[in-house]
């Protein structure tokens, strides 16, 4: 671990309940390094926040973790198994356990909401069309959109699209839920409701949640573990419980970030 980073959790790199581990990760576009020396671990059941100032590579880190982008160096381990060292078939097996909700919802616009949620089920299970539809109905009901199965994404509001994105992410009852800026573009109340929904689903599904966000309200109300990426130093400067980081961090930048520069 780089000397710069501080840690507020006692948990070290390995433990019985470590779900995801990032080891010595370097992210780069060609020769341009986005972040380097990233090392942190996420416990099973954590709500893990990836935070940092704009352009520091939060979404890029998420893309490395879900398998959309190959690391320039380092490893991403799921239950101790290296994701990028695995062959494509094994990787698909890993990805079967991911659910991802994208910043812009990323619903397939030519499909109805039920079809959007049904596609992962079609791809990974051999359920009948009727069963898939029933599951899609259930997932829509879970996000409060019962009855909207046959709508197209263009016919519903942005907040509803976000919730459908969440319903699609939980379609396969994943172990790990990834969120890229879940509250981007939502009003404070919708954003709070979405946070509650994420929390509720995490509690009942028992999934590990990884969230990219810079909404302080979300960070403190739902996060119990985090990593802070610094855009200038191009590495992580802290990891641990965000509330503890706010109160105890000696890094002025982290302190400013977590107190909105007010304290």
């Amino acid at each position: 671990m780089p000397a710069l980073a501080e840690s507020t959790t006692a948990a070290t790199a390995s433990g019985p309940d470590v779900h995801i581990q990032v080891k010595d990760l370097t992210m780069a576009y060609g020769s341009f390094i986005v972040q380097q020396d990233l090392t942190f671990s996420i416990q099973r059941g954590d709500i893990f926040i990836i935070m940092g100032d704009s352009g520091c590579g939060k979404s890029t880190l998420l893309r490395h973790m879900v398998g959309l982008k190959r690391p320039a160096k380092g490893q991403v381990l799921y239950e101790g198994r290296d994701f990028w060292a695995a062959d494509p078939v094994q990787r698909k097996g890993f990805m079967r356990n991911f659910g991802m909700s994208y910043q812009g919802s990323a619903l397939w616009s030519s499909m109805t909401l039920a079809e959007n949620i049904g596609l992962p089920l079609q791809e990974y299970t051999d359920l009948s069309a009727a069963d898939i539809r029933e599951l899609a109905q259930l997932k829509l009901a879970l996000v409060g959109l019962a009855g909207f199965e046959d709508y197209y994404p263009s016919e519903i509001s942005g907040g509803m699209m976000k919730r459908v994105g969440l319903a699609r992410a939980i379609a396969l009852d994943p172990d790990i839920l990834y969120f890229d800026e879940p509250s981007a573009g939502l009003d404070p109340i919708s954003s709070r409701l979405l946070d509650d929904l994420i929390l509720e689903l995490r509690e009942s599904l028992g999934a590990t949640v990884v969230i990219v966000t810079h909404e302080l309200a979300s960070i403190f109300s739902i996060g119990n573990n985090s990593v802070f990426l610094d855009a200038e130093k191009k590495t992580m400067t802290a990891t641990g419980d965000p509330k503890q980081l706010r109160d105890t961090s000696t890094d002025p930048k982290i302190h400013r970030f977590l107190t909105r520069g007010e304290a």
Binding site: L142, A146, D150, E200, S204, L205
Partner: peptide, 24 residues
Amino acid sequence: PDGVQRLLHLASAVPERKGARRAA
């Protein structure tokens, strides 16, 4: 199980909106 109860509660928390369903 506890989780199941919570999810059932969540699924029925928002009643289906009247008239939302499309005529097939």
